[in-house]
Design a protein around this nucleic acid. Structure first.
Ligand code: DCP
Ligand code: MG
Ligand code: MG
Length: 1151
DNA sequence: ATCCTCCCCTAC
DNA sequence: TAAGGTAGGGGAGGAT
């Protein structure tokens, strides 16, 4: 754990954080998550044919859901209102002003509730929308009244709750003491607010925000999150940014290869050519053109396009009178200039200016400033409200317009993108600036908003050109004139150079790019790091060799709130963590991703910072804490994420009252896109190529030979949801795991500390609690969980941190060294992806289908070997009685439900042998003291151990029996059994010693009991075995009773202190480990195997190597049974080839 | 050396 | 009042 606080003071807005501006977090709520629904349904219904809807504002279901529904049923979905094309507006709630606006428009179209779509689909026909109008004529007045009332309420509320602005952080920082003349202040404020009210009528607020206001100031309020997010501009621009990155991906996927805009340009050019050729019909003319074209083709032309003061422009696009006025978009209503500004040190409104007009910028106002500060600079500044819907509408027009010329687009944000215009200019014969004029005019005409473009030979130049062009203009910065231009720039003008870097450079006496050019690369790298130094070195010369990032791949999903966090106690904190978990989970699911890493990000009030922040509900100066946890499998389950998050929270022991910001980030994503063939395949292919290399390198790789089914099974899982049969045995992996893991200082603390002594009441109650939770989880996630368990692991090599999500996704696709690749098509890694991408979509899909078909066949083939494993297992037992195989013990404990007389005989045969061996070992035990259970453990717990032995057996068998019942898919008892299973999981692993009587727990017990009894009676039939088996079981159970750390230590001790491998130790450990999959303790299993590996690789003893391989192989078998997949564990390669080969023989022998 | 984790920094 | 989010590149330093 670490915490840090920024301590430099170059502050961009000069306020509050000696820390400069705070980075912040948040999450988003609805919308976006674009779906390729139209592709997913091969025969879409035609229900909504001819209907085109535009969804306005928040709806239930969300606009994305509605979009999907429309697409599924043959309708159209417009991202913005298209007069004469959009047939219906869908809204759950519209401000009166919007209703009037639509009604007044030239062709008024109906505004319907979303239910119209839902009901129509349910009815299978388009119902009469008249019955679903949002507001009939009669209710207009009503809605207007409500609206006004609500507004009044807000203002009253504002007056009464107006805060005394004591403890302004800035005053603290600057040492200025402010007298808190509260009363006077309040009076002033009230008075000013009255003035504001009066002013408000001729201010330019549009009041478009939601007309439903609830009290959502506290994280405890149900509406807090949604209110915050729906008002957060930063949330808006962040989510819209990714929305448009996805949007260009989607446009590219759906593209029919036609570019209407470009075609127009080409026609224009042809017309021009005809004109010129009539003038002079000579061949040389063509040649000149030709050479011109060739010349152009050689240099790349990148366009950067960015709306001018975007929020302002959209806000005033229908208010020509405000053009050229100093305008700012802020939340603060009305003109707060008179409210707080007293001409002295006070800051005035701390509402942030999202965007300000160029008139305002002339006075020094900047985006991101506090309104109070801006008003000091520009007393005439007028404020307007946010219009998030409007921004969206304009953004889509911007993107659609550019997309009509090219799809070589890299989206940057909702108002900004790069586009590779090389082809456009080549095909149209236009110069960059000619094209700029055309496209800018087009966008301005469509949106009524000014836009600037920059062109350059790389993206840096394009970007700098835009900056130079603004406002409402264009510029072309080429390799020729870049040199001169760079000399006019400050370092701060370079993209990527922010406050900190500027500050550092300033300390080095570097202010301009020209200064920077004089600094050597090595100095820069020393000061800023390798990459950053290099980047600076190039940038200040106008050089940039980075390519446009056309295909966006998401690497993380997060949700953060650093506003309004004021917890009273731990309950509040946990409650909010829970809500935020839900939020981040929803977002994960919306992008069809699962993640393997959970990070909790916290902002904690700095010690010296006042409890009340200057900014209302702001975070003030803070320390930052992040803590992450890696999971063994990717998850998108809210229960798992919540538990992990709360676990981390509990581990940190922070004061809830001091929290000022909370964020949850999920990374190491695996994207489960069903139809995103392209992206996946690209990565799949490249991954395949990588893995091939990797595979060759590790041809001795233990795990490859350990499990010949590995590859096929991986593919099976890999082919994802549709092919993964639902298995109740794969549920609740992390629930169980979380319950089982030793938790520091959590409510589970009793369980963990009760290692040997039976603990009664306490433990029982915790168990029940856990049981309830599990039950709940079980039901809520019955369907999803089974699918979630693609077990991956940490790749033994090349587990690069920067894997892309798709690489992760295909982690299991480790191809065998050839045998599984029976494609007739070329080896996939030989396919040139750029060629493939260029193919028409239908042909491309054909190739993909072919490819998928192959894969599927393999998957089906792969399904069998899972069963074969158990067959092989039996066979091996029969064939090789002398081989002491931990399978035997496991099998016995598992009480395999497919009774096989031969096998049973074999088991007892083996057990007898084992018993003999154990006897021998026991006689040596005192001397060698190499037993796995360790002295302390044995001595400390011997008594209770023996006393409880029967119970332990009983419990274990119950557990196993219940599980096996599940596996046997006795459907009608599934639910109860699952409960049973969960109870036992918790019980048997976390508080093993308290398992006295659990049979009363539920009805399913009866069935489970039956199996136990059978099992026990069989066991008791063989007295000789009984004793030693109990001992083994006891050993295994001891391992279960130990906290993970101690098991780890036991293993370390065992391996490092023993010269020979004690078979009983091996048996105990292997059995223990092999039961972990069934207990869903995959993460523990993984840790332990890694520990084992680490210890064993330290010595050169091939016996140990073999022991490790046997253990792994054994464990993998149960991984296969439980998860249909292998755990990724490191392999051992011995210098002695006989060791490796010997292992091979072993494998062959076994299988 | 290489990886992992916890940061920092930046952009919009 | 005010709505200070989000994603990605990258570096430092400890663990392996
Ligand atoms: N600190 C910031 C920066 C930006 N934005 C929002 C409002 C902007 O309008 C929009 C686009 O950001 P730009 O950087 O493109 O700034 P503008 O479009 O406002 O101005 P410019 O003309 O410089 O592009 O993002 C914001 O809310 N807060
Ligand atoms: Mg802009
Ligand atoms: Mg921009």
């Amino acid at each position: 754990m670490s915490r840090k606080k920024r301590d430099h003071a170059w502050g961009e807005n000069g306020f509050e954080d000696w820390g400069g501006y705070m980075a912040a977090k948040k999450a988003k709520l609805e919308e976006q998550f674009r779906d390729t629904a139209n592709k997913e349904f091969k025969e879409p219904s035609k229900l909504f044919e001819g209907i085109a809807v535009f969804v306005n504002g928040y709806t239930d279901p969300t606009s994305d859901e509605l979009r999907r529904l429309m697409m599924m049923h043959g309708g159209l979905y417009h991202h913005y209102m298209r007069p004469k094309i959009t047939t219906h507006i869908i809204a759950s709630n519209l401000p009166y002003s919007k209703i009037i606006m639509y009604r007044k428009s030239q062709n008024p179209i109906p505004i319907c509730k979303p239910q119209w779509i839902i009901d129509s689909i349910a009815a299978g026909k388009v119902l009469n929308f008249q019955n679903y109008l949002l507001y009939s004529n009669n209710t207009n007045v009503q809605s207007l009244l409500t609206y006004k009332l609500n507004n009044k309420k807000i203002e009253d509320n504002a007056n009464s709750t107006m805060h005394k602005e004591q403890d302004i952080e800035q005053s603290k920082a600057s040492g200025i003491v402010i007298n808190n003349e509260t009363n006077i202040n309040n009076q002033n404020i009230s008075k000013h607010n009255a003035i504001n009210d009066a002013l408000k009528h001729d201010t330019i607020s549009t009041h478009q925000s939601s007309n439903i206001k609830t009290n959502a100031q506290s994280t405890r309020d149900a509406e807090f999150l949604s209110t915050f997010y729906s008002n957060s501009r930063l949330h808006y621009i962040a989510t819209m940014g990714t929305t448009f990155k996805d949007y260009v991906n989607e446009l590219r996927d759906k593209s029919d290869g036609l570019f209407p805009g470009l075609d127009r340009l080409i026609k224009l050019k042809e017309a021009r050519d005809i004109l010129t050729s009539t003038d002079c019909e000579s061949d040389p003319e063509d040649e000149i053109y030709f050479t011109d074209k060739v010349k152009r083709k050689r240099e790349v032309i990148i366009m950067h396009i960015d709306m001018d003061c975007f929020f302002v422009s959209v806000g005033i696009r229908n208010r020509p009178e405000l053009r050229d006025q100093p305008i700012a978009v802020t939340h603060a209503k009305g003109n707060t200039f008179s409210a707080n500004y007293d001409g002295k040190e006070e800051f005035g409104s701390l509402s942030e200016v999202a965007s300000c007009s160029y008139a305002a910028r002339k006075t020094g106002v900047k985006n991101g400033m506090f309104l109070g500060e801006a008003l000091k600079l520009c007393p005439n500044l007028k404020t307007i409200q946010y219009d998030f819907e409007g921004y969206k509408e304009v953004s889509y027009i911007l993107y659609d317009t550019v997309a009509s010329y090219t799809l070589d687009i890299e989206a940057v944000s909702c108002d900004e993108m790069y586009a590779d215009c090389t082809k456009i200019l080549e095909a149209s014969g236009l110069s960059p600036l000619e094209f700029a004029t055309i496209i800018r005019k087009e966008i301005k005409q469509k949106t009524n908003c000014p836009v600037s473009t920059g062109f350059g030979n790389n993206r840096l130049q394009a970007r700098l050109a835009t900056r130079k062009a603004k406002p409402d203009n264009q510029f072309y910065l080429s390799n020729q004139n870049v040199e001169t231009h760079m000399r006019t720039l400050d370092t701060r003008d370079l993209p990527g150079v922010g406050g900190t870097t500027t500050y550092k450079l300033r300390k080095m006496n570097v202010h301009t790019c020209e200064d920077l050019q004089k600094v050597s690369l090595s100095v820069l790298q020393k000061e800023f790091g390798k990459k950053m130094g290099e980047q600076l070195h190039k940038m200040c010369r106008g050089l940039d060799d980075t390519k446009l990032n056309l295909e966006h791949i998401r690497k993380s999903v997060s949700a953060e709130v650093n506003y309004g966090i004021r917890f009273r106690n731990n309950g509040d904190a946990v409650d909010f963590l829970s809500k935020l978990s839900t939020e981040v989970c929803d977002r994960l699911i919306a992008v069809r991703a699962k993640g393997r890493c959970i990070t909790l990000k916290l902002m904690v009030r700095a010690e010296e910072a006042p409890v009340e922040t200057a900014k209302f509900m702001g975070h003030g100066p803070c320390n930052y804490i992040t803590k992450s946890k890696n999971l063994i499998a990717a998850v998108d389950d809210v229960n798992i994420i919540r538990k992990e998050v709360v676990n981390i929270w509990n581990q940190l022991h922070l004061t809830p009252e001091d929290m000022r910001g909370i964020g949850i980030q999920i990374s190491r994503l695996e994207i489960c896109k069903t139809k995103q063939n392209k992206g996946n395949l690209i990565n799949f292919f490249s991954k395949t190529a990588k893995l091939q290399t990797c595979d060759q390198m590790s041809s001795n790789d233990d795990k490859n030979r350990c499990d010949p089914n590995f590859n096929e099974n991986s593919k099976l899982n890999n082919s994802k949801v549709p092919l993964t049969s639902e298995s109740s045995g794969t549920k609740n992996i992390f629930e169980a795991q979380i319950n089982n893991l030793p938790l520091t200082k959590s409510s589970n603390v009793h369980k963990d500390e009760s290692s040997a002594i039976p603990c009664n009441v306490q433990t029982e109650s915790t168990t029940t609690e856990a049981e309830d939770k599990n039950l709940h989880n079980c039901k809520a996630h019955e369907n999803t969980k089974a699918k979630n368990l693609e077990i991956s692991g940490i790749s033994s090599k090349k587990a690069t941190q920067k894997q892309t999500s798709q690489e992760n996704f295909f982690k299991h696709t480790k191809p065998s060294s050839g045998k599984s690749l029976k494609y007739e098509i070329p080896r996939i890694q030989d396919i040139d992806m750029s060629v493939l991408i260029e193919l028409p979509e239908d042909i491309r899909n054909e190739i993909f289908d072919e490819y998928k078909r192959n894969k599927k066949q393999q998957s089906q083939v792969a399904a069998d070997p899972v069963n074969k494993v158990s067959d092989d297992e039996k066979n091996s037992n029969i064939q090789d009685c002398s081989q002491v195989d931990p399978d035997v013990l496991s099998a016995l404990m598992k009480n395999d439900l497919h009774p096989d007389v031969q096998r049973d005989v074999q088991i007892y045969c083996n057990m007898k042998r084992e018993a003999n061996r154990v006897n021998l070992n026991e006689s040596n035990e005192n001397k060698s003291s190499k037993q796995l259970q360790g002295a302390s453990l044995s001595s400390k717990t011997n008594n209770s151990k023996n006393q409880n032995a029967k119970h332990i057996v009983n419990n274990t068998c119950t557990n196993e029996a219940a599980c096996i019942l599940q596996e046997d898919k006795i459907l009608h008892t599934r639910d109860q059994l699952r409960e049973k299973d969960d109870v036992n999981k918790t019980d048997s692993t976390s508080c093993r010693n308290s398992r006295i009587e659990i049979s009363h727990n539920n009805a399913a017990m009866d069935k489970a009991d039956t199996f136990i009894l059978q099992n026990l009676s069989i066991l008791h039939n063989n007295e000789n075995i009984d004793k030693h088996q109990e001992m083994l079981i006891t050993l295994v159970n001891h391992l279960f009773a130990l906290p993970l750390q101690q098991v780890k230590m036991q293993i370390q001790t065992w391996i490092t202190k023993s010269k020979v491998v004690n078979e009983v130790d091996f048996l105990s450990l292997a059995t223990f480990l092999s039961m972990l999959p069934q207990k869903k303790r995959i993460e523990d299993l993984h840790i332990l195997l890694k520990t084992m590996h680490r210890c064993i690789t330290k010595n050169d003893d091939c016996t140990w190597h073999k022991t490790y391989r046997r253990t792994v192989k054994h464990v993998q078998r149960y991984m296969q049974i439980e998860y249909n997949n292998n755990l990724m564990v490191p392999s051992i390669r011995c210098n002695d080839s006989r060791c490796n080969n010997g292992d091979c023989e072993f494998e062959i022998l076994e299988i």
